[in-house]
Amino acid sequence: MRILVTGGAGFIGSAFVRTIMMDSPHHDIVVLDKLTYAGNLANLAPVSSRLTFIQGDICDPQIVADAMAGCDAVVHFAAETHVDRSLLDAQDFLTTNIYGTYTLLEAARKQKVQRFLQISTDEVYGNALSPAGVSRPSVESDPFLPLSPYAASKAGADNLAYSYWATYGLPVTITRCSNNYGPYQYPEKQLPLFILNALEDRPLPIYGDGQHSRDWIYVQDHIAALLCILQHEDVNGAIFNIGATEERTTVQNACTILELTQKPLSLLRYVPDRSGHVRRHAVNASKLQQTLNWQPTVTFSEGIRQTICWYQEQLGWLEEIKARHNAFLHHALNLANSVS
Rank of each mutant, 00 (worst) to 15 (best):
L4V: 06
L170V: 05
W165N: 08
R305D: 04
L204S: 01
V278I: 14
N180M: 11
W216S: 03
I257E: 00
T173H: 00
L145G: 04
H222C: 15
F300P: 02
L4P: 06
N179V: 14
Y270P: 02
Q262A: 10
C59F: 04
R115V: 13
L160D: 12
T256F: 05
A65W: 12
P264T: 06
L265A: 05
I12T: 03
P264N: 10
D221L: 02
Q295G: 10
D142Y: 13
M21E: 08
H76E: 06
R202P: 00
L230R: 04
E319Q: 14
K110C: 07
Y168E: 11
E80L: 11
V139H: 11
E140G: 06
T121V: 11
L160H: 08
R2S: 09
F144A: 08
F93S: 02
R2K: 13
V219I: 15
V17A: 01
S213N: 05
S130T: 15
A332R: 00
N253W: 01
G126H: 05
P61H: 03
P183H: 02
V47H: 02
L204V: 14
Q114C: 14
D57Y: 07
P131D: 06
V271P: 00
R269H: 15
H330T: 10
S135P: 05
R274E: 14
F300V: 07
A244K: 00
I119L: 08
F53G: 10
A166R: 10
S153W: 02
T103F: 02
A254K: 00
P25S: 07
F11Y: 06
Y37A: 03
A42I: 04
L226Q: 12
F77V: 05
A9L: 07
K189S: 08
T52M: 10
M21T: 14
W310G: 14
F77E: 04
R136D: 03
K154R: 03
Y270F: 15
R85A: 15
I174A: 11
L32Y: 06
E123F: 09
A128P: 11
D23N: 04
A128I: 03
S266K: 07
G169P: 03
T103M: 12
T121D: 03
C255W: 01
E200I: 04
Q220W: 01
P183Y: 10
A161F: 00
H325S: 12
V30C: 02
Q62D: 09
Q306G: 09
D84F: 09
